[in-house]
Simulated scan of single mutants.
Amino acid sequence: MSNTPPWAIKGELILNCNCTVFCPCVISLGQHPPTEGDCAGWAGIRIDTGHYGDEDLSGLNVGLLLEIPGRMARGNWKAAAYIDERASEAAYDGLVAIMTGAAGGTTGLFKMLVSEFLGAERAPVVFETEGNERRLMVGRAIKGSVKPVQGADGGDVVVTNTQYWMGPDITVAQASQGRVRAYGRVWDFDGRSAEICQIDWKGPGR
Rank of each mutant, 00 (worst) to 15 (best):
S2V: 07
T4M: 07
I9M: 09
K10G: 12
G11H: 08
G11K: 05
E12A: 08
L15S: 15
N16H: 13
N16C: 15
V21H: 15
C23R: 09
C25T: 06
H32G: 10
P33S: 12
C39Y: 05
C39M: 06
A40K: 13
G44I: 10
R46A: 11
I47Y: 03
G50L: 06
E55I: 08
S58A: 14
L60K: 07
N61A: 14
G63R: 04
I68N: 02
I68M: 07
G70W: 03
N76A: 14
W77K: 08
W77E: 07
K78A: 09
A79E: 01
Y82D: 08
E85F: 02
E89S: 11
D93S: 10
D93G: 02
D93T: 10
G94M: 05
L95N: 06
A102M: 06
G105W: 00
T106N: 04
T107M: 11
G108D: 06
G108P: 00
L113C: 07
V114Y: 05
L118C: 06
A120T: 03
A123C: 09
P124H: 11
E130F: 08
E133P: 00
R134I: 03
R135Q: 13
G139L: 12
A141M: 13
S145N: 09
V146H: 04
K147H: 13
G154N: 09
T160N: 14
N161W: 10
T162D: 11
W165E: 09
G167L: 04
P168I: 13
D169I: 11
I170H: 03
T171H: 08
T171C: 08
V172D: 05
S176Q: 10
Y183Q: 08
W187S: 07
F189E: 03
G191M: 08
S193C: 15
E195H: 12
C197G: 10
I199T: 09
P204G: 02
R206G: 10
